[in-house]
């Protein structure tokens, strides 16, 4: 395999493992929405025991948080599906790439005419065949196959590009949800701190929601980094010129 092909193959491998990494990350986040919901429901119970306007505010805030998992769960599901599809697309692409590289190698060998001098070609071909007449159609036919295979690769990579955009969009949405939850958690902190002793009961909830959101935020950062390197890989593959 020549250097360009090796390079592309290496990048396809990286893109493939990237899809699997993202999928693995999103799998580890799959029950996060449910955990948040349980915390928020406990918060509603606590808030309902607080009388007056502050009680109403706390019920409203915890209720809002309890509804957000309904938004988070589909996003996490989308991230998982898109990343699995990305890995699948790239695997598919790798199979076709193998075919392309074998055709490409065949052209190299045929053009070099390796071994042809060691044989009496005239005695092997029928009278109206010469070496070039015999080989040129094979070479052009293979080159055509190679270019078709390469076009398929580029087409599949276009799908990968779309998937990376979808993933990137999902994570942006996820980040804005994280910000909203952080904001509501901060509001709960402010409201409950005004309650003195009764407000301390909310400390556990605030801490756990904060922990959960920090965890999600940290993973979202890893995913964003992965996706960015995915875009870079795709661009590099697209920019390589394959000469056969």
């Amino acid at each position: 395999m020549n250097k360009t092909l090796q390079d592309i193959n290496r990048r396809l491998n990286s893109l493939n493992s990237l899809g699997l990494d993202v999928s693995h990350e999103s799998k580890s986040l799959s029950d996060l929405g449910n955990r948040l919901q349980v915390l928020a429901i406990n918060g509603i119970v606590l808030a309902s025991k607080v009388s007056g306007d502050r009680g109403h505010s706390l019920v409203t805030l915890t209720s809002l948080i309890s509804k957000l998992p309904n938004e988070i769960n589909p996003i996490l599901k989308n991230i998982r599906t898109d990343s699995m599809d990305l890995a699948k697309d790239v695997t598919n692409c790798k199979i076709r790439f193998k075919k392309f590289s074998q055709y490409s190698r065949a052209i190299d060998i045929l053009l070099k005419g390796e071994n042809h001098n060691s044989l009496d070609l005239k005695s092997l071909y029928s009278d109206n065949f010469t070496e070039s007449q015999g080989l040129n159609p094979v070479i052009s036919s293979l080159a055509k196959k190679s270019s078709i295979v390469y076009e398929i690769i580029l087409m599949l990579l276009k799908d990968s590009d779309t998937r990376l955009f979808q993933l990137s969009h999902s994570i942006k949405t996820l980040n804005s949800l994280i910000k909203r939850i952080h904001y509501m958690n901060l509001s709960i902190t402010i409201e409950s701190s005004a309650l003195k002793e009764e407000g301390k009961k909310f400390n556990g909830l605030i801490e756990k929601v904060s922990e959960l959101m920090n965890f999600l935020e940290q993973h979202a950062k890893i995913l964003i980094k992965d996706i960015e390197s995915g875009f870079v890989l795709l661009e590099k593959i697209n920019n390589r010129r394959i000469i056969v």
């Binding site: 055709y103 190698r105 065949a106 190299d108 045929l110 092997l124 159609p137 094979v138």
Partner: peptide
């Protein structure tokens, strides 16, 4: 690629 190369010596 190698088998094809040998085959092409004898037949299209």
């Amino acid at each position: 690629p190698e088998v094809l190369n040998e085959v092409a010596k004898y037949i299209h």
